[in-house]
Design a protein around this nucleic acid. Structure first.
Length: 601
RNA sequence: GGGCGCGUAGCCUAGCUUGGAUAGGGCACCGGGUUCCUAACCCGGCGGUCGAGGGUUCAAAUCCCUCCGCGCCCGCCA
């Protein structure tokens, strides 16, 4: 339920304000339960604890599971357990309520530890101690055929947020973008732009002529003929064959010099769009490299000798994958064409072997249309005797209301640039309406940050496996559970600290001054950041980070309305420290989400 | 046809991996709040057979089975 388990690996006292409490309560529960006939391991005890549950308890423990071994009805067991629970230290009160044992803790202790930790660790607050584990996250990897499309933006945002969560949880993450410079898609553009415009098919020429925009980004300019050309090729075999011939030339290593150049230019344009969302990559892996460095050939040699290898009559090589749980019609995985050339999945095997050589974990963020491909890849790895597996994070495609699929092949649907431009226009209106004091450039900067924040938050707040229908009003939401809502709380906290400039870091405070329920609400939310990060990294459920950020902002807003800070007297310094800690947690949560921080808005 | 994913109030969504106390939020709607640190905010109200049915269990949104609806995939494409 609302139960918020301590989450994943055991909390660390150096990073998590809850850690000492968890340890104390686990020990207390075990000590009280054992004489009643309920033996619990430490891990079991920790797994049962519910944090942040109902208001009457800081930590709750359901005892149903112990009823049988204790030979007692749950309420009776709860009552005895509560009576036997060792008091003292942080444990203020232990009561039974039905089948639950509720533990109340000394709030001043949590205030003390939480503020101290948040203020001392700063930008590192919420992060675990680095464990140095090498992780590769491959995401986005959209083919360089035109402007970045919003159907794909989910991959980039989910992937990038996951990367941020993993890094915060202590992993050493390398992000990779796999660029398909082989194959038909990229080749189509090369064919077009190395062919005189007069020789283009008429409908393709029409799609371009009169639509050029001076100074436009290369992805828009070079990608413009792509949808029309794609449609044209379906109807015109001769032209399709010319492109196919170029594909073969490129695969054989005789790519025209323009080929890589065009792909790179388009990719640069796409990356510029992603850059507006704060998404970037450490490495770009070009598919052709596995062909040229001989690794595809080595994979093929091994596959020829694989347990289920079969040679087709026409000379193609396949793996009989009947035992791998694939759909009946695709039990044969072709790994090499009759003409000797390789296939996408073969090259992907080479790619993943390269990943395994460098990384302990390889995570791939894929659209659900790649599910079968993922299974196929796993089957081939098994055939090679490779035990390691990539981990897949699968997201569902974004659809448009009319039911059409928003893929790059689908044509001229909304681009990421178009979405962001519209978001900026609307954000700008909001800023102008409330900030007469600001000059143009400041307004523009805020509008861009609000727009990017709104889009990122909107995408990440929904579980990736859920289908999403694109709607402008959702994507551009600035209220309620949104990016700007969190940005606003951060800006407010920043504003308070600016105006309370007499009080400066390290923000001395007295924990016992912070006793208002809304103050404690903020503290509890701040204290939950470390375990939220752990949970997100462990499960890959990045939507939890969005939920957390909203919750924290919500608590802060409530506190802000209920309790004066700068006008307080005795409590002033402590409340300023609380605001500083909340601002730190809000800022760190925004960083995890890739939503820009705004000092003012 | 087969495989996989999704189905929670008018709309969107958390929770499901690890079953536990009245299923959390947001939008919309209704009613309040600005001599006070930013009203992109806050307070209150309205709204739920957790797709349907069966099963397991002391306990099911959560696990199992069947069915229904929607989506995706089932290429010597990528």
């Amino acid at each position: 339920m609302a139960a918020n388990s301590p989450g994943g690996t055991a909390p660390d006292e150096a990073t998590d304000p809850w850690a000492p409490w968890i340890a104390t309560i686990v020990a207390g529960v075990r000590r009280a339960a054992a004489p009643l006939g309920w033996d619990l391991s430490e891990a079991q005890t920790e797994g049962l604890l519910e944090l942040g549950g109902p208001a009457e308890a800081d930590v709750a423990l359901p005892v149903h599971r112990g009823a049988a071994s204790a030979g007692l009805a749950p309420p009776e067991l709860a009552a005895r357990l509560a009576a036997a629970f060792p008091l003292g230290g942080p444990v203020r009160e232990v009561t039974a309520s039905g089948a639950y044992v509720n533990v109340r803790l000394d709030p001043a202790e949590l205030v003390q530890r939480t503020l101290a930790l948040a203020l001392a660790r700063g930008a590192e607050y919420g992060h675990a101690v680095p464990d140095g584990s090498a992780v590769c996250v491959e995401h986005t990897s959209a083919n360089p055929t035109g402007p970045f499309h919003i159907g794909r933006v989910r991959n980039a945002i989910v992937g990038d947020t996951l990367v941020r969560a993993l890094r915060a949880a202590g992993s050493r993450v390398t992000t990779q973008y796999y660029v398909d410079d082989l194959g038909r898609q990229a080749t189509m553009l090369t064919w077009l732009w190395t062919t005189p415009r007069e020789s283009w098919p008429e409908p393709v020429r029409q799609a371009v002529e009169g639509h050029e925009v001076p100074g436009e980004k290369p992805d828009h300019r070079l990608g413009r003929p792509y949808p029309a050309f794609s449609a044209y090729l379906k109807e015109h075999r001769e032209t399709a064959e010319k492109v196919a011939e170029l594909v073969r030339r490129i695969e054989s290593g005789a790519a025209p010099p323009e080929h890589g150049q065009i792909a790179r230019e388009v990719l640069d344009g796409m990356l510029a769009s992603l850059g507006r969302l704060g998404v970037s990559f450490d490495e770009f892996v070009w598919e052709s490299q596995f062909l040229h460095d001989g690794s595809v050939e080595r994979v093929l040699e091994r596959l020829h000798r694989a347990p289920h290898a079969v040679r087709e009559e026409n000379g193609a090589w396949a793996i009989d994958a009947a035992d791998y749980g694939l759909p009946k019609e695709s039990t044969r995985i072709v790994v090499q064409r009759a003409d000797g050339t390789s296939l996408y999945v073969t090259r992907d095997v080479a790619y993943h072997l390269a990943k395994f050589a460098r990384f302990a974990r390889a995570i791939d963020v894929l659209g659900q249309d790649h599910r079968l491909h993922a299974k196929t890849l796993e089957a081939l790895l098994t055939e090679l005797g490779e035990r390691r597996r990539p981990e897949f994070v699968i997201y569902q495609d974004v659809t448009v209301p009319d039911g059409g699929r928003m893929s790059t092949r689908g044509g001229s649907a909304v681009t990421l640039d178009g979405l962001l431009d519209e978001a900026v226009v609307r954000a700008r209106r909001e800023v102008v309406a409330r900030r007469e004091d600001l000059a143009g450039p400041e307004i523009d900067a805020i509008a861009e940050a609000v727009a990017a924040g709104a889009v990122r938050f909107q995408v990440v707040r929904v579980a990736p496996e859920k289908p999403v229908a694109f709607r402008w009003e959702d994507a551009l939401s600035f209220e309620g559970r949104s990016g700007p809502f969190v940005q606003y709380a951060y800006a407010r906290a920043s504003s308070v600290l600016r105006k309370g400039e007499a009080d400066r870091p390290p923000y001395p405070f007295a924990a016992e001054r912070l006793t208002h329920p809304d103050e404690l609400g903020v503290v509890r939310a701040v204290a939950a950041l470390p375990r939220t990060v752990r949970a997100a990294a462990r499960t890959g459920h990045v939507q939890g980070l969005a939920g957390y950020a909203h919750e924290l902002a919500d608590r802060f807003n409530r506190f802000y309305h209920a309790v004066p800070v700068l006008k307080a007297e005795r409590e002033r310094a402590s409340r300023i420290a609380l605001v500083a800690a909340a601002r730190q947690a809000l800022g760190n949560a925004l960083d995890l989400l890739g939503v820009p921080r705004l000092e003012t808005m």
